[in-house]
Nucleic acid binder design. Structure first.
Lengths: 292, 292
DNA sequence: CATCGGGTATAACAAAACGTTATACCCAGA
DNA sequence: TCTGGGTATAACGTTTTGTTATACCCGATG
């Protein structure tokens, strides 16, 4: 037995007419007739007397009415209550991001998203990529924004942006007016690196190794923070290869200079990663849409 | 949404297992899985966490449970209440019968039926056939037992027995030792008739007219009661043609004699008539079954 | 460590249910 | 008598619901 039958029964009783009930529910009259018949068959009794083409509720119908009403009301109420509870659940969104993305790209992005969806409470947690993906696995975060490849096949992975790794030097460096240099020239410079487990550093090293110049480059300094690297480069301590995202402002304001490397371009994708769930928070789908 | 889904949800919560719920409801496990999925889709939220192959009710599930329980309970209650009300309705049975059937056949029949279905309160009303059928039309009686043809096509008509019209004479009548007489011999006898509107009389007259002897028979007396006719015949006032039913006892005890008429046999069907309703009182179907 | 038994999810398919249109019928009112 | 509003029924296509077969995961057991 369907709840729709009981709902329809109430409507027919209230309206006193099957046709009218059909119109109000945007159904054909035979459909409603059948729904009532099903109820009558189920209870094995007439619910309406059909006399002179008109309906009159029978005794059994009068008995059924309050039950039907109560059931339909409870059911509607249950919808509201659950919607509310999932509404609270849906009202927040926890984003996890890797360091680069989280520190340089996401703040403005989240600002714009928040302006578009002010009712969603957004939280941002920044960790390195493996930790972020671990959080995603454990449902600590709702979605992850990372660079670098994601291997877990249980995740849904979409590219949402690109970033470029670029060579930057101090504004008073001899290369400052050159459009581009040859890769081999790097050997003469003091290179400042991120710590060795950094995804960014891995990519750069791979690239240099492929071109056979990695060994020739002096590892002058290792610094665990992008911001510190930028300051070091600005201070003339060396050069570095950094995501364009992180140095956009410094380039613009002339504190740092970008120098191209001939025939080399290191772009990498930025990935939006989420769990393959049957039900997502509304914020997740909203944010995914927003990123397109 | 079906009430079965809510019922099933309660069961799964109670049992803590989809497979167990499936077994208890004699359904396949995929069927139950899908029912739960439908609920989850309807409420657009998970109701169970599937972890390590085990189910754990979610927050939303916990919220839904009391509603589901209440709805299922109300629904069950509604069934009981309506069954009770129709039960009272079903507890009685009003039978209408024509005079002959009602006075001679039905008393013992109803006695046996009552023994078989003691909980059904049976009422018998006896009128002539047209009146009985009128009562059936107006729902004054639940079923009718009549002889003679029923024309109304809205009725369901089933033959439930046969009756024979037989010639009876006093026990001291000259014919008393004869197996049968010739039709023509009737002309010499004093025939006692029922009143002219009697169905029985019509049948007999038709038969006699077909054989061309009706005009030759003296209409000696008209009496409006079968019982009175029997007494008149016993008293030697004449002979009569009566339903075997009505004279069975007198024949047995020798107060009257049956005399066959050569080549003539007047059997007629006794009809069980009922309205073509979608829902019948239980007593009606029980009585119909009983008569087979 | 492989295997087994219990659990859930999914695909594919047959059977049942549901809504549709077309149609019949009945009754009241013009 | 015809029309308009009502209900019931038949026929038909689509959707839903159950089934079996199958995959997969996990914990227990040999």
């Amino acid at each position: 037995m369907k709840l729709e039958n009981l709902k329809m029964f109430c409507l027919v009783v209230d309206e006193g007419s099957i046709s009218q009930a059909a119109r109000l529910s945007f159904l054909s009259q035979p459909a409603v007739t059948r729904q009532i018949h099903q109820l009558e068959n189920y209870y094995n009794t007439l619910l309406f007397d059909r006399e002179e083409g008109r309906l009159r509720v029978t005794e059994a119908g009068k008995l059924l009415y309050p039950f039907a009403k109560a059931i339909v009301n409870d059911f509607n109420h249950s919808k509201v209550v659950i919607q509310q509870s999932t509404g609270e659940y849906n009202a927040n969104l926890i984003v996890g991001a890797s360091l680069t993305i989280g520190e340089y790209l996401l703040p403005s992005l989240l600002g714009r998203f928040k302006k578009q969806q002010p009712e969603i409470k957004v939280t941002l947690t920044i960790k390195n990529t493996p930790r972020v993906l671990e959080d995603l696995s454990n449902d600590v975060i709702d979605l992850a924004l990372v660079e670098g490849l994601v291997e877990n096949t249980d995740f849904i992975v979409d590219k949402f942006a690109e970033d470029e790794l670029i060579l930057v030097c101090p504004s008073d460096h001899p290369w400052k007016d050159r459009k581009e240099i040859q890769l081999e020239e790097l050997g003469n410079e003091r290179m400042i690196w991120r710590e060795s487990i950094s995804g960014t550093r891995l990519i750069v090293e791979n690239m240099l190794r492929e071109h056979g110049v990695l060994e020739k480059i002096e590892s002058y300094m290792e610094i665990g923070s992008t911001q510190a690297i930028k300051s070091a480069v600005e201070a003339g301590l060396g050069i570095s290869i950094l995501p364009r995202l992180t140095v956009a402002r410094e380039l613009e304001q002339g504190f740092l200079c970008k120098v191209g490397i001939s025939r080399i371009e290191i772009t990498r994708n930025l990935w939006l990663v989420r769990k393959n769930k049957r039900f997502n928070k509304i914020g997740v789908s909203k944010f995914v849409d927003f990123l397109r």
